[in-house]
Design a protein around this nucleic acid. Sequence first.
DNA 1: TTGAAAGCGGTACCAC
DNA 2: GTGGTACCGCTTTCAA
Lengths: 339, 339
Amino acid sequence: MKLIIDIIKLCMKGSGFMANIKEVAKKANVSIATVSRVINNKGYVNEETRKLVESAINDLQYIPNEFARSLYRKVSKTIGIIVPHLNNPFYYRVIEGIEDIAFDFGYKVMLCNSRENIEREKEYLKQFIKYNIDGLIIGSNSNEIARYLELNIPIVTIDRVISDEIPSVISDNTCGGKKAAKKIIDNGCMNIVHFRGPSTLLTVQQRAEGFNEYLSSLGLACDEVDLDFIDPDTSIIADYLNTHPNIDGIFCDSDTIASYCMHELTKLGKKIPGDVQIIGYDNTILAQLTTPNLTTISQRMYNIGSEAMASLESLISKSILDTKHKVIPVTLIERESTK
Amino acid sequence: MKLIIDIIKLCMKGSGFMANIKEVAKKANVSIATVSRVINNKGYVNEETRKLVESAINDLQYIPNEFARSLYRKVSKTIGIIVPHLNNPFYYRVIEGIEDIAFDFGYKVMLCNSRENIEREKEYLKQFIKYNIDGLIIGSNSNEIARYLELNIPIVTIDRVISDEIPSVISDNTCGGKKAAKKIIDNGCMNIVHFRGPSTLLTVQQRAEGFNEYLSSLGLACDEVDLDFIDPDTSIIADYLNTHPNIDGIFCDSDTIASYCMHELTKLGKKIPGDVQIIGYDNTILAQLTTPNLTTISQRMYNIGSEAMASLESLISKSILDTKHKVIPVTLIERESTK
DNA sequence: TTGAAAGCGGTACCAC
DNA sequence: GTGGTACCGCTTTCAA
């Protein structure tokens, strides 16, 4: 008889037999209500009974089915993250920060790498709804923002401010620009170019603002060139440097751009930092691998993520927030590419 | 009256009003069974009725609740991925490959970044069970392998082979090692060092095997030094290069290691590729940013991911597999760090 | 071609 | 303290 039952069990669900609350109840000789109380640590349960149930749970390797739970509770203990890329240290460090805190609060994370593809983003939006996510962290220039807002769930944005109402966490880009400007100017550079990221981005605008403000306070100005952070068009960099031989100071919005610049400058026979001084952004591994090492602005990416998740958790559970718009400080890391 | 209804709706679930199948049924004047048939495109539905239901769905912006569905169906249309890190181009490119194919097949992806932390991995394992994942792709040296196998769900491993039974997708590391050896030897190097990754990893062993095989076929041998792929102990590299001044050929198991080597060699006044030739691994952005550019072995990371997901899907849906152990080819990208 | 009803695996209220 | 039971939202027989 036992054999038959075993065979039946074996046939169920590819033999991946998963006990349910009913079986635990039967094994412990109690009702499912009692088992529920035990696993949720809620309501009165006799100490004896609890032990009985717990050992049954152990014997059966019982793990509650989250679908059934969420179906009733209406909360999924899941949050969504939307990022435009994964190939950027910024995002995966941020994700680590988010995930760590989410983990601590018992939240699962659904990651949406939109790849700047609207269709993908729409599909993920649907998934988010289907899975009843409890909150959302947006790190992309979503074209679907309006629809995300319609979800009527707590949202926190990263590296952008959508409105005064939507909480955000953003790096102190203005300060980053200012620190770079101060360093490069105080070191005597006069002919300066700013190789920016896409100037449609708030972060880029803020950096430029901080940078230019310091320059103009001294009656100076600089050229500005838009590039992609991670995959810049190198010919633009080469052309610019070729046609502007007297450039002696460069501020780049990413270490990648800065590395390309150094590559080009070396080709042109320029000495760094002798002829040209250069400052990058992000303090990625690249900054330590170039020759000479790169002076750069360091963003606390991990903290951006963890702060965002902290905000989101607070919104979900308490619906209040101490600081609606958090600004994370940056630091200048001095290495060999500046004097 | 309409106002009152609006207010009521507003109060429900934080105003994030989500229609359910019952409301659709009521609006369309049919039973929920019929609505179910329509949304699943299953069973007989009169064309007229279908239109009625569809317009109701549209009006109410109805999206089926996935928890309820999965609760009944027992499949979640979700797969899990376990990776040890995110800070490695290898993994996020692989993840992109997995995700793209998963997306095509209608699977969601739960990402577990174990950070080589057993506790995190255990917790994720629990989540996987709770969420009834349909399959699992393992890219980590999981200490929990045994328990993953107990899940009795389809598993595919990436970059490692656990047993003959568990399908795997792995880069042709032996060939990668061989190609590197061939290039470096044919170019005349005689004193060679192999800066490996951790030699506990199968991939590293295979590369060494391919590399050494070619060397020994010519009666040659080389030193081998273990390092971390992404965050190698630079003092080990510096020490080695300092104490072995006659090294003229270096094979590194990552572009990062290779970049550090170039950095050190430059410090020592060595010319690349004049005095020392060097080959990296992975063909990351680094290889194009170093001066000189880095010759490297290119792995088709995206394809590793997409093939793994293809295998998994086949296992889940058809339980059969054409090729159990897939080997993805590699190519040598020649740049400036070799003659 | 349609609808009633029995689950799926839990939670929580209400009796006892 | 405990158990019975009505849901949660959806799928799927089974009758009509």
